[in-house]
């Protein structure tokens, strides 16, 4: 079996096609493991992992922690809100202090783009990027693609539209990189204020009309409107956003085709997606969450096998 070409998971753009294939193959084995009566395996029992969250997270943090525990790793958790970062300690100092406690891997979420890359050059541990600002969120993209592949059998040639707040979204960027690598056609759709300039230079389509976008697509990945990152007014009101870009049953009926609906969570019900769609059969939001644990187990497993003894 081949190894990953990288020692850290910093972003999708640093992975090769073979790496992604290897991660998917390993993920499907772990998906079987987490559906066993006893879901724990001892693979990482001599590995210590620190989860450093300098930004809020529920799903990703829980998912990583569960993946680590399912692999029998020792886990320490750290969140910036109740730490010395508040007292003015620098990132490197914080991490070096944690590493001196003999930690092998670091899972980090940080508000600054490039934080994971920066850290990987400074410290010896294996770094996994769990989101760095509006840059990348590689594990989310991998689990999204894994979920699409599971439902549609393959990704090559499929049409995926990413809808909503592209500007503030690391999920969008990582998804674009991953989907393009795997041979999908990608479109982004949303109000122009929430679509970054020059995004078409990534080789993707841009569409502002939701109905047209849905008509084109096989998969709709609906993003959360990230109110907390919005320092200006990007659209007049939530209601207006929901009217134009909200995925509702009514819109889907108009389009009248089988669409796979995805959402990385957390959902703003009634804004970017309505409850009847989020809870419908076509929505694979909860499958994504389950696959998230399997994919993260695979990434931890594959990266741990590259750590020097």
């Amino acid at each position: 079996m081949s190894k990953l070409s990288v020692s850290h998971l910093l972003g999708i753009k640093y992975l090769t096609d073979a790496d992604i294939e290897l991660i998917f193959e390993t993920s499907s084995h772990f998906k079987e493991v987490i559906n066993r009566p006893i879901k724990k395996v001892p693979s990482l029992r001599d590995v210590t992992i620190a989860n450093l969250f300098f930004e809020n997270s529920t799903r990703t943090k829980l998912s990583f922690e569960l993946a680590q525990k399912r692999l029998s790793a020792d886990v320490i958790n750290f969140s910036a809100s109740n730490s010395s970062v508040k007292k003015g300690e620098s990132l490197i100092d914080t991490v070096n202090n944690i590493l001196s406690m003999k930690v092998d891997m670091v899972v980090m979420r940080h508000p600054n783009p490039g934080a994971a890359m920066f850290l990987s050059k400074q410290v010896s541990a294996s770094i996994i990027n769990a989101g760095d600002g509006a840059h990348e969120h590689p594990t989310q993209a991998l689990l999204d693609c894994f979920s699409i592949r599971e439902k549609l059998r393959e990704i090559k040639g499929k049409k995926v539209v990413i809808i909503g707040d592209i500007l503030h979204s690391r999920v969008a960027l990582s998804n674009i990189f991953a989907l393009k690598k795997l041979g999908a056609e990608v479109m982004v759709c949303g109000p122009l204020t929430l679509i970054p300039k020059h995004i078409d230079s990534l080789g993707i389509r841009v569409e502002t009309n939701l109905e047209k976008a849905l008509q084109w697509a096989d998969v709709a990945n609906v993003l959360r409107v990230q109110f907390e990152r919005m320092k200006a007014s990007f659209f007049p009101s939530n209601r207006e956003y929901a009217m134009q870009y909200g995925i509702t049953k009514k819109v889907l009926e108009k389009v009248d085709k089988e669409l796979l609906i995805m959402h990385p969570g957390p959902i703003n019900r009634g804004v970017e997606i309505s409850s009847d769609v989020a809870d419908s059969e076509n929505a694979i939001i909860l499958d994504q969450v389950q696959n998230g644990v399997a994919v993260r187990m695979a990434i931890l497993y594959l990266l741990a096998s590259k750590i020097e003894q």
Partner: peptide, 23 residues
């Protein structure tokens, strides 16, 4: 499949690759 239960993980050169588990 016993791959994830083996005691030579990180001790062998190759990545231990799993087989299908049909239980």
């Amino acid at each position: 499949d016993i791959t994830f239960f083996r005691d030579d993980f990180r001790r062998s050169e190759k990545v231990l690759s799993a087989n299908k588990n049909l239980m």
